[in-house]
Design a protein around this nucleic acid. Structure first.
Length: 375
RNA sequence: GCGAUUGUAGUUCAGUGGUAGAACGCACGGUUGUGGUCCGUGAAACAGGAGUUCGAUUCUCCUCUCUCGCU
């Protein structure tokens, strides 16, 4: 059993569980900082642990280009390579189809990318992607999925659902074959990713097809791309309504506090997003009173911490005025402190959410958070 | 003192006898499975005076100013 539910909120679908991986157990729900190239921007591995990140997500495609999956394998796998004690998750690289500068085409056989470092063309098949992720030796791997754009036509999204299912079958088959001699507890887990945009019928089809393949968990792909919150919530509900209770669900790419809380309420277990770190670098910070834009002039001489109720390293030691100044000067320490705070904030938010689930008070907790972000 | 030269947004620079642009900076938005320090919107200027002209930031003259050279 790779997933066990330990608590359920009485009034909502929010839940706490434990996922068992070869690296150890991790309690859900959790949020993963993004560490595409085996590093979260401006935050080192020890800081990740210090600020409460129990898992991070890196990008298999990008790492296969540099430093190369074989090198990471030689150096003992990604956890050892970057000296991160927690759970390492890898994304397949499917999301990079969203990036016009590196995505070229995709067919039934696989995806053609342009190596952003050298310019040469590279062809990734589902099988190749599984081998890369096993070389990198992450604890949880993602299937290669066909990522459509939000503005794509329904017909185009329908096509991406078909490819995603086809590739998921091949990922599962190859992944099983490569690991068939390993005992369950030594296996790398594999998650399927559903697509279908915000079209209920397509999304339903995608979820049902992947469910038949029996993955260790199920990711919701292709959201946070421009759809409304309501559209997003409906897709999350749909996915939860089709999948069995005992499978973890991962809402990929979502990092907005309100959206995370709403998803937890619906029973989502895992999250990741570049939002906390990207926003931090650009001056938008999460606080217990909602978002603040630290670059605004009103904080020029503000000698209070980013968030009075926060116990993070940045809030315990530095003022808003100082961090604002550093960010304006493009000083790397400013980006470090702001990123640290936003990541710490999300970890704390989820900790509070878990406490609320244990107390059967998740609805009340959600309302209090929504109230904070009303501005 | 004489001669030449310069003056346009906070800064560095475009430009025009008829509605003056950019970059950076400034103010305010945005940001969701990381090609990155990104994207969007806004405020903001013709050194001063006189003349020519229907109309001058533009042409002429004077004052001031910048820089250089000569005494």
């Amino acid at each position: 059993m790779t997933f066990t539910i330990t608590h359920k909120d009485e009034k909502t679908n929010a839940r706490i569980g434990i996922i068992s991986t070869k690296k150890g157990e991790i309690e859900t729900p959790f949020f993963m900082p993004v560490a595409t190239k085996s590093a979260t921007k401006h935050i080192n591995s020890q800081q990740l642990t210090e600020l409460g990140a129990k898992a991070i997500i890196s990008n298999a495609l990008i790492l296969s280009l540099r430093p190369g999956n074989k090198l990471i394998k030689k150096l003992g796998g990604i956890g050892k390579f970057m000296n991160f004690q927690g759970i390492n998750v890898t994304d397949s690289g499917g999301f990079q189809m969203y990036s016009p500068s590196i995505y070229l085409t995709s067919t039934e056989k696989g995806v053609q990318f342009k190596n952003p470092f050298s310019g040469e063309k590279i062809f990734i098949t589902p099988e190749k992607d599984m081998e890369i992720q096993l070389d990198i030796n992450s604890d949880i791997a993602m299937c290669l999925d066909r990522m459509p754009l939000y503005e794509d036509s329904k017909k185009e999204i329908e096509k991406s659902v078909k490819l995603t299912t086809l590739w998921a079958e091949r990922c599962k088959k190859h992944h099983t074959k490569l690991q068939k001699k390993l005992p369950q507890e030594k296996r790398q887990l594999l998650f399927g990713i559903t697509q279908g945009g915000v079209y209920k019928d397509l999304r339903k089809e995608s979820i049902q097809q992947l469910a038949e393949l029996d993955f260790d968990g199920y990711s919701i792909g292709g959201l946070g791309m421009g759809e409304t919150k309501q559209e997003q919530y409906k897709i999350v509900e749909l996915q939860k309504s089709i999948l069995p209770e005992n499978k973890p669900v991962y809402l990929m790419g979502i990092g907005d506090p309100i959206e995370i809380i709403n998803a937890i309420e619906k029973g989502v277990d895992m999250f990741d997003s570049r939002m906390p770190t990207m926003n931090a670098r650009r001056g938008t910070l999460f606080t217990s009173k909602g978002k603040i834009k630290i670059l605004n002039k009103k904080y020029e001489a503000d000698s209070s911490p980013l968030d009075k109720e926060c116990n993070c390293m940045a809030c315990k030691n530095y003022t808003r005025a100082y961090i604002r100044f550093l960010l304006r000067q493009n000083e790397s320490v400013g980006r470090e402190l702001a990123s640290y705070h936003n990541l710490f904030y999300l970890q704390t938010l989820i900790k509070q959410a878990k406490q609320a689930i244990k107390n059967n008070k998740f609805s009340e907790f959600k309302k209090s958070i929504e109230k904070m972000y009303k501005n």
